[in-house]
Nucleic acid binder design. Structure first.
Lengths: 349, 349
DNA sequence: ATGAAAGCGCTAACAG
DNA sequence: CTGTTAGCGCTTTCAT
C-alpha cells in the first residue's frame, strides 16, 4: 500500500556517482564543476555516468557551501505600467524558459513602494532565493541600480541606462526603430509628422526621441516642438496625446509612437474624429509588439523578438553570477520593421 | 579596500543563537519548529533571541534534510488566454506578496506544450524549487490535477473542478455573479437577455451558465438557446459572439458576459452597429476586473478581490505543504456588484 | 526538557 | 591528477 507517496523516484546523489565509478565525491564534484585539475578521461567518465544515472547536483545542497542556488530574481513594480501589459507573460515565459535551459529558475517577487523594492532585493539575496536580478525597464535615475551596485549583487538591465556606471545591460535599438519609422513615412510623402514618446523616467524615451529627431533631419523635415508629446505609456495617455495633436490647426498627417499601447489610444482618438487610419492619418507604433504578432488592430510597427531578448538577459545574468566572462556586457538588438495597414501616403488636400 | 563585496551583512546562524543562549543547536531548532518537548520558557527565550539577532533559518540549509525550500510553484501556460491578460500581474503580485508574508517565495516557470507542463512540475519538485503548486483556472478535464495527485504533490486549484477528487481549491462564486446580473437586468425591465460564456474547457463555464439559467428562471424569463454563446475568452471572441447575437432578427436588449475581455468585444460590436451602450444595449461583464477598478470603458461588472483570492490560495497551499490543518479546504468568495454606465432600462421601441 | 552526535548532499582546503 | 578530511547550516535520532 503506497500511502502518501510524495517523491516519485529516488534521486541519485554525488556519492552514488562516485561509488559507481570508484572515485571520491570530491573528484566527481570537481569533474562536474569544470575544475582544471581533472583528467579529461575522468571528466568524461563522470559526465557520462551522471547522464546515465540522471544525476544533477541539488542546487540547495550546493548552496549551503557556495551560496548560490541557481535562481534568477525578478521584482515586479506594480506601479509600473508595464506590469499591466500583455507583454508581461511573454517576458516571464521567455526568461524562465531561458533560465531553465541552463538549470536556473525564476523567482518572482513584487513591490508597490520603493522601499518594498529594496527590501525585496535584500531578503531574496539574504535567503538565497536569487543569485542575481533582472531589472526590466532601465530608468534614467534608477535606484535599483544604485542599491544593487553597492551591495555588490549581480544584475542585468533591460534597457540602456544613460550613465552606465559599469553595469551590464541588454537593449533593443528603439532609436533606430523611430528613425526608420520617420524615414518610411517621409518616403510615403509625409511632411508633418508627430511624435508620441513614452515615459520620460525611462531610459528609452530620450533615445527614441533622438532617433525621431535624427530621422526628421535626415529626411530634411522641419521638427515642430508642438508636435512632440511626452509620457504616453497607456492607451489612455495615447488618446490624450493624440487629441492634442489632432485638434491643432495644422494636424500631422502621420504620428510615430514609442509605445504600442499608446498607439492604440491614437487609433481611438483618430476614429473618434472620423479619421481613417492609414489614410487620413498614418500611425507607426513600437515597443513590445512581438515580431510576427498580429497587432489588433493592424499597426505598422517594429516587431521585437522578445524571446531572444529574454534569452540574452538570462544568459548574461547567469554569466555574471558565475563570474565567467564576459563579466561585463552591453548589447543591443535590432527590431524588424513590419509594414501593415496603418500607414499610407498622405491625403493630398 | 572593499573589493567585490557581495554580501552586505553576516547572517546569524543557528549556532550563534544557541551560543548566545547557552543552549544546543538542536534545542534551538526544536524550539523554532514548534516541537512539543520544549519548555515554554525556553521557546520564548529562543524566539526572542532569534528576533533580536535577526535569525532566520536558511531555507536551503533546512531543505537538505527536510526537502522543503519554502517556495510555491506556478507554471504559466502560454496557450492560455489568461496569460495575456493584464490580470496576470495582479495575480503574481498577490500570490508572491502573500507568500512572502509567510516566508515563502514564488517560483515561476512556463510551458507551451502539455508535455512541458508536466516536465516542469517534475523538475521543479525534483530540484526542490517548489514545494507545491498553484494551478490557475481549473479545467473540466485537468491533466495537471491527475498528474500532481498521483505524484503526491501538494497543490491548490483556483477554480472548482467539476469532479473534485479530494483536492483543495479556492474559487469565486461566478454563478452568483451571473445570476445577479440577470436579476439586475430583469429588474430594469429587460426580457431578451443574451449570454456570452467563456471557454468551456474551464470549470467556471458550466457554473456560470447554470447561474445565468437560474437567474432567468427566477426572473420568469424564457431562455432562448440561440441567445447563448460559448467559448468567448478574448476581445475578438466577444466581438464575434456579439455579432451573432446582434445581427439576429430579434436582438437581445442586454447581454451578460462571463469574461471581461469578451465584454469589451461586445462593446466594439455594439458601437460598430451604432448602438449606445447602456441604452440600446446593456452589457454586464465579469471575471478579473478588480473591485474598485475603473473598467475602460465603464462596464457593469462584478468586482473581484483578487488580492484576497491570492492570499487564500497561497495560505492554503502553505498549509497543505506543511501538513497543518486544514489539510483539505474548499472555499468560495463572493463578488461585489458594481453598477456602472453599461446598463439601463431597455429602450421601448 | 535538553544535550550529544551523526548525517543530509555537497564543496573545498590540503596532501600526496 | 586524485583521495582525505573537514565542514556548510540545519535536522533528527538517541541518550540522559
Amino acid at each position: 500500500m503506497t500511502e502518501g507517496r510524495v517523491v516519485t523516484d529516488k534521486r541519485a546523489t554525488i556519492a552514488d556517482v562516485a561509488r559507481a565509478l570508484d572515485l571520491t565525491k570530491s573528484t566527481v564534484s570537481r569533474a562536474m564543476n569544470g575544475f582544471p585539475d581533472i583528467a579529461q578521461a575522468t571528466r568524461l567518465r563522470v559526465q557520462r555516468m551522471a547522464e546515465v544515472m540522471n544525476y544533477q547536483p541539488l542546487s540547495h545542497a550546493q548552496a549551503i557551501k557556495t551560496g548560490i542556488t541557481r535562481s534568477l530574481g525578478l521584482v515586479l513594480q506594480l506601479s509600473d505600467h508595464d506590469a499591466h501589459r500583455p507583454f508581461l507573460a511573454e517576458f516571464l515565459a521567455g526568461v524562465s524558459a531561458s533560465a531553465s535551459t541552463k538549470g536556473y529558475t525564476l523567482t518572482v517577487a513584487s513591490a508597490d513602494t520603493h522601499a518594498d523594492l529594496i527590501t525585496n532585493f535584500r531578503t531574496l539575496m539574504r535567503d538565497g532565493k536569487a543569485d542575481g536580478f533582472i531589472l526590466p525597464r532601465a530608468m534614467v535615475e534608477d535606484p535599483r541600480v544604485t542599491y544593487l551596485q553597492d551591495a555588490g549583487v549581480p544584475f542585468v538591465l533591460y534597457g540602456r541606462p544613460p550613465k552606465s556606471k559599469g553595469c551590464s545591460w541588454f537593449d533593443i535599438r528603439g532609436e533606430d526603430a523611430m528613425r526608420h519609422a520617420v524615414q518610411h513615412l517621409a518616403q510615403l510623402g509625409h511632411r508633418r509628422i508627430g511624435f508620441v514618446n513614452g515615459g520620460s523616467v525611462y531610459a528609452y524615451a530620450e533615445l527614441r526621441l533622438q532617433g525621431f529627431l535624427v530621422g526628421m533631419q535626415a529626411a530634411g523635415l522641419q521638427t515642430d516642438p508642438a508636435m512632440i508629446m511626452q509620457n504616453a505609456v497607456t492607451e489612455t495617455d495615447g488618446f490624450a496625446a493624440a487629441e492634442q495633436l489632432l485638434d491643432r490647426a495644422v494636424r500631422p498627417s502621420a504620428i510615430v509612437c514609442a509605445i504600442d499601447q499608446a498607439a492604440l489610444g491614437i487609433y481611438r482618438a483618430a476614429q473618434a474624429r472620423g479619421l481613417q487610419i492609414g489614410q487620413d492619418l498614418s500611425v507607426t507604433g513600437y515597443d513590445g509588439i512581438q515580431a510576427g504578432a498580429q497587432a489588433q488592430p493592424p499597426l505598422t510597427t517594429f516587431g521585437v523578438d522578445n524571446n531572444a531578448a529574454c534569452l540574452r538577459l538570462a544568459t548574461l545574468l547567469i554569466c555574471l553570477i558565475r563570474g565567467t566572462p564576459p563579466t561585463l556586457l552591453r548589447d543591443t538588438a535590432t527590431a524588424t520593421f513590419l509594414v501593415r495597414g496603418s500607414t499610407g501616403p498622405p491625403v493630398t488636400s
